[in-house]
């Protein structure tokens, strides 16, 4: 029987799993254990709904409603001194719970603290742009759209950023295979030569370990290795090739092929 491969997550899977193994957790601390974070959380909680909050690896993580993202970040920027949005992107949990996790990595230089604001959105939902607060979100949100297909409302210039504009599919989705899909394999052929050239050119080889041993154009002798010293001329007469200028090159002694010795005995 063919092994079952889930279609909603085609990324590489561990080939060995112990069914009794319970994965340990990165320890989480209570927010009350840190005074600065506790105050920040209080200020946020006063105005917005916070589902969960904890401290993990020295940073506070808070879960908010996706429609509050602009408000929370605005509050953090203007009232709580979180002046920089270091990073934002998404994590694809579509296979597990049909949602994307979007995270905003905030930095306060005054307090020397970092907070990760997280929210979950459903597949077809869009999120509000925070570009008006942080210009850096301009490119981050474009990248998030490019990689995950998450739409962002009220973005000033919403288009792909890393992939070509006419690309189909969003590469960081768990449903997107590592070596690209059907579209990716034919993209360049279709675009440059047209679909009618597909038969002549063939799909792009996206398997980095692929070896075509009968390909004589690119790696001429790959797969046709012969023992050392074997005659590979196939009866063709040898052509004398000279690569140096007849008169020699200034300061370089002319290489005399006939007067030099070719070592054939390897165990000499």
């Amino acid at each position: 029987m063919r092994r079952y491969v889930p279609k909603d997550d085609v990324q590489k899977k561990a080939y060995y799993t112990d069914r009794y193994w319970v994965a340990p957790q990165v320890p989480k601390a209570k927010v009350s254990s840190d005074k600065v974070f506790a105050e920040d959380l209080k200020a946020i909680k006063a105005a917005f709904k916070v589902f969960d909050a904890y401290i993990q690896v020295e940073q506070m993580v808070i879960y908010i409603r996706p429609e509050d993202n602009f408000g929370v970040l605005e509050l953090m920027k203007n009232k709580l001194d979180y002046t920089q949005l270091s990073e934002m992107s998404a994590v694809d949990f579509l296979a597990d719970r049909g949602e994307f996790d979007i995270f905003y990595q905030m930095l306060s230089m005054k307090k020397r603290k970092r907070i990760r604001v997280k929210c979950a959105i459903k597949k077809e939902e869009a999120i509000e742009s925070v570009e008006k607060l942080f210009r850096s979100a301009d490119w981050s949100e474009r990248e998030m759209y490019d990689m995950f297909g998450i739409k962002v409302n009220n973005h000033p210039f919403f288009k792909r950023i890393l992939m070509p504009d006419d690309w189909e599919g969003h590469p960081l989705l768990k449903t997107y295979p590592l070596h690209g899909d059907e579209f990716a394999a034919w993209y360049e052929v279709d675009k440059i030569f047209g679909k009618e050239a597909r038969d002549i050119i063939g799909p792009e080889i996206r398997d980095d370990a692929a070896v075509d041993r009968y390909d004589t154009k690119r790696f001429a002798r790959l797969g046709h290795e012969v023992p050392y010293g074997a005659d590979i001329s196939k009866g063709e007469p040898a052509v004398k090739t000279e690569y140096q200028e007849d008169d020699g090159v200034f300061l370089i002694e002319r290489f005399e092929k006939d007067s030099s010795t070719v070592i054939t005995d390897r165990d000499r």
Binding site: A14, A23, V26, Q56, V57, S86, E87, Q105, R116
Partner: peptide
């Protein structure tokens, strides 16, 4: 052959 399996969780390190 299998690789290490870190604990469940997330981290941002700058």
């Amino acid at each position: 052959t299998q690789g290490m399996r870190p604990p469940v969780g997330e981290v941002y390190v700058a």
